[in-house]
């Protein structure tokens, strides 16, 4: 465990190095969040009855999405990992006395949380003080907030476990060019990156809520505001745990098979 924590620490310090980039990123994400909220508010004004969530819940959803962008977005791609596979440097990775799946998993989690932690504070701070309809609300209760925190961690796990499957597929195609955009777009869409899942047409929404992608940002961002509350939220956590375990099992199996292939082929 200690060595995985070390990986985590190094990545964290690394991400802290780029302060100017972080400042620019914060400014961009803040503006981005505002524009998204303005767009939703235009739709709200067009027909409040057709709005599937409370407006304030949507506002919290957008702000949290921007604040924790790095935590949940599919399109953060661990290029260290993909380049190692594409370029054949994977052979060196195999020499190290570490479980590769765990190592990459730890590395991805570390990179994502380092970035997110660095950037979330200023965005959240502003989101809490902007004028009313656009202001981010507080969670309805302490238990609800606790569930949000747990759900966020699980969500990060699901996101990383899913990207691990994508990385493994590069063992077979040896090129990440196509996979990356196809994968991140489809998964991202179904996870609610573009619009929250409640805004999908009812039939599509019903299906999307069963898929593993609904166990990503969809859960924590809606639990926070109480859009999913109480018993439903607990079910949501269970749903996340279920998919997380399944994805990890699948990921390890797929990776072991792929690594055997590498060994057989001699890298």
């Amino acid at each position: 465990m200690k060595k995985y924590l070390a990986v985590f620490r190094i990545r964290f310090i690394n991400a802290l190095q780029y302060r100017a980039a972080a400042a620019a990123g914060v400014a961009t994400q803040f503006a981005w969040g505002f524009l998204e909220i303005f767009a939703f508010s235009a739709f709200y004004r067009a027909n409040p009855n057709a709005f599937p969530m409370e407006f304030s819940h949507t506002v919290s959803y957008i702000w949290l999405q921007q604040a924790f962008l790095a935590l949940f977005m599919m399109w953060f791609w661990e290029s260290d990992v993909t380049e190692a596979i594409e370029g054949g440097a994977i052979a060196y990775e195999l020499i190290r006395p570490m479980d590769l799946y765990k190592r990459w998993f730890a590395q991805s989690c570390a990179n994502r949380s380092a970035r997110a932690l660095l950037r979330c504070a200023p965005i959240l701070l502003i989101a809490f003080i902007v004028p009313k309809p656009y202001r981010m609300g507080l969670p309805p209760s302490l238990p609800q907030f606790t569930m949000f925190v747990i759900s966020s961690a699980l969500s990060l796990g699901v996101v990383v476990a899913t990207s691990m499957l994508a990385y493994v597929s590069i063992f077979y195609t040896l090129s990440s060019t196509g996979i990356r955009s196809v994968f991140t777009t489809i998964v991202g869409f179904l996870a609610g990156e573009y619009i929250p899942i409640p805004f999908f047409p009812p039939s599509i929404r019903a299906i999307a809520e069963l898929l593993p992608f609904a166990a990503m940002q969809n859960m924590p961002l809606r639990i926070y505001s109480g859009n999913i509350a109480g018993r439903d939220a607990l079910w949501g956590l269970a749903f996340q745990v279920f998919w997380l375990s399944l994805l990890i099992v699948l990921g390890r199996l797929a990776m072991n098979r792929a690594l055997k292939r590498v060994v057989v082929q001699g890298g």
């Binding site: 599937p52 489809i186 805004f199």
Partner: peptide
């Protein structure tokens, strides 16, 4: 194809929003 898909996702979200509102 990837490029096509990325903007297609945006188009799809636009379609979802407009068909609702």
């Amino acid at each position: 194809i990837g490029q096509f898909l990325v903007s297609f996702a945006i188009l799809l979200s636009l379609y979802f929003m407009m068909s609702r509102f």
